[in-house]
Design a protein around this nucleic acid. Structure first.
Lengths: 104, 104
DNA sequence: CTTACAGTTCGACAGTTATGAAACTATCAC
DNA sequence: GTGATAGTTTCATAACTGTCGAACTGTAAG
């Protein structure tokens, strides 16, 4: 495995290594599951992502940026709000790194 | 998703968030793939895991402990040497967390 | 234009992490 | 026993991280 690939992967894992950030991502993933089951891509406001999380706005902004920079989520402005969705490519990369190809 | 589960998952991701530690784990995983293909469980010395990694012994010892504490690898003494292998349960946990059940 | 809203940027601070040097423990070979 | 080998523990240190308050930017509504 090339050094660049390892670094890229490590960055993704780092983005998921903070419980609050992981919760954000899992919430988004949960929503995505529901929506994908219905055949459309999910979008979601930041505020909505925070369900139960008691974090200040600057902190959330920072976490979202980390997840986006790592390639795990995609963001998009829509008026005042920031729309987030899981990046399917990033997710696929993660999963394939953890897959025992010899077994499947 | 319960708080404890999130914390446990986050700990696993954190263990993989350092490039050197991730390389250690990926080396082990690579070896495991080969061995599982042959129908046996792989074991591997620390020194062997280090292929190319220029880290001091204390650092490696520390990284191995982190991976073990996170539940990603299992260790076992054998004479002077420490035998490591991927913990299949931990790996399965990680993979299932990243799986879009609605899609599979 | 003014106000309110959603999110960002900029410090700052406490806490954590990665790394190695030195000293240590445990095991094997002689 | 002596010495060599494999790994651990302790400690120090530089670098990084998570969080927030305060000030800021951009957008929409009136």
């Amino acid at each position: 495995m090339a050094k660049d690939d390892v670094d890229r992967l490590a960055r993704m894992f780092k983005a998921l290594s903070n419980p609050n950030r992981l919760r954000l991502f899992m919430n988004l993933l949960e929503e995505s599951k529901l929506d994908l089951a219905k055949g459309r891509v999910h979008d979601c406001f930041l505020a909505k992502l925070l369900g139960g999380l008691e974090l200040g706005a600057p902190t959330v902004s920072h976490h979202v940026k980390e997840l986006a920079d790592a390639g795990l989520i995609q963001t998009q402005r829509e008026g005042k709000q920031l729309i987030c969705s899981v990046d399917p490519d990033g997710l696929a990369e993660l999963r394939s790194a953890l897959t025992l190809h010899a077994l499947t």
